Computed example of a mutant assay.
Amino acid sequence: METPPNCDRWSELPVDLLRCVLERLSFVDFHRANMVCSNWYLCSKQTLGPRYGSPLLIMSEEEGSYRLYNPEEDRVYEAKSNYRFLGSSGKWFLVVDSRSDLYIINVFSNEKIRLPPLETVKSSLYNIERLGGDKGFELFIEHAKILVTTKDLRAVLWVDEKKRDYVVVWGFEACPYLRFWKKGDVNYREISTRFDLWLYGLKDMVLKGNSLYVRTVPNNIQHLVLSGQDRFEVVSEIYRPLLRTDEYERLIRENKIISLINNIVVTTSQELLMVQTLAYESSSFERHRMFHLYKEQDTKFIKVDSLGDEALFLDLGITVPADHTLGIEPNSIYFTRDDRFCHKRDSYIDICVYNLATKTIKHFPSLSNLKLKDAQWFFPS
């Protein structure tokens, strides 16, 4: 919903009439409407709007625009943007624009917080130089020069709505360092992901509050706490052995494996899970998926078969309580892609919900005709 050309006249609508209008709006339109003017905003606070908290999809299309999709309504909302979406927290998204600048934006109100330039890094170990335009950046690390663009950028975001506080962590896939930024910081601070002199690289990360979970090459998982005073603390470190199942070994022998990706997930009780996504082809050359869950226990990962009464959102790296009234299915994995941090050549978008108990996949037919280059599940609250 666009802001009316004469907002004063719209703001003079009788409260009873305005409330009737707001009560009939969809979830997305309701949130756009309360940004029209201060009177609409105040009235929306006194109006029983649509149910709040259902998972939504944000989808980037090949031509540069994006859309919002509400599975409960089975409705797609169109919008225009030149942003690339990197990570989300509630209705806030960390994005990068065509000029390689970082922002935090509210996808409903378009409220925007600009972050410092990517090259604003305080470090004695490396340097970042912007090449200008869309040419990307040069990283100077230990006498080596690496050319990167924002396509190599990986990031996570956490926003505390009540305190209006936020934490951002980002890094380039080819660089052995992450950068983090907390509200009030002057410069980006660095975190080394180096395992030794030669082995480094980002495979996955999850940010939950001030807790950052990072998986790096070769199979190292670190739990860090990003504290104040520009510091971070390594709380724990796990060396994860390679996880192999009987199904995986069988498919390898039959030469049907397409890919195998492992992702880390943090549960509502702060437990660490490993999610293994296996893509393979059947005899009819149809592509299928298989999921395995492993729970961290005493620095080891034990295979588990169920999430219980929780749902897992792989894009966010978290689990949430199931809620049938909000359309959050229990013991299910909400999926779009398995290589958000470690891109594959044969990557493809597969928007679905996988039920671990029945081993069945639910797709969304109304999205099948869209030409998408990316999609992410998120929660507006």
Results as ranks from 00 to 15, higher is better:
D323F: 00
L316Y: 03
S332N: 04
S306L: 06
I333R: 05
K300Y: 13
T299W: 12
I318F: 10
S332V: 04
L314V: 11
A279F: 09
A322I: 08
F301R: 03
I302S: 07
P330N: 09
L273W: 10
Q276S: 15
Y280H: 11
R287I: 14
H292F: 13
F291L: 08
F301K: 03
K300F: 13
E271T: 12
G317D: 00
T299N: 15
G308K: 10
F285Y: 13
S332T: 09
F285H: 12
L314P: 02
Y294W: 15
D305N: 15
P330Y: 06
T319N: 09
T277K: 11
D315W: 05
D323N: 14
D305T: 11
G308D: 06
I318H: 10
T336N: 06
Y280D: 02
R287H: 10
V266N: 01
L278W: 01
L278A: 02
L293I: 09
T325G: 01
L293D: 01
Y334C: 05
I333T: 03
L278K: 00
L272Q: 06
S283R: 09
T319E: 08
F301S: 03
L273T: 08
T325D: 07
F313D: 01
E286V: 04
L312V: 10
L273F: 15
E310G: 03
E286H: 11
N331Q: 08
I302K: 13
G317C: 04
D309R: 14
T319K: 08
G327A: 00
D323V: 00
F313N: 03
E329G: 00
I318D: 01
I302G: 02
A311M: 06
K303L: 09
E271L: 13
T319Y: 11
K303F: 04
S282M: 05
F335Q: 01
A322P: 08
F313W: 06
S306G: 04
F291C: 07
F313P: 03
L312M: 13
D298W: 07
G327M: 00
S282A: 04
F301P: 06
S269Y: 13
A322E: 09
S332K: 01
A322L: 10
D315G: 11
S332G: 04
Y294V: 03
A279D: 11
G308F: 07
P330L: 10
M274K: 02
K295R: 15
V275G: 02
S306W: 05
D298C: 11
D323K: 06
Y294H: 12
V275D: 00
T299A: 14
E310M: 12
I318A: 04
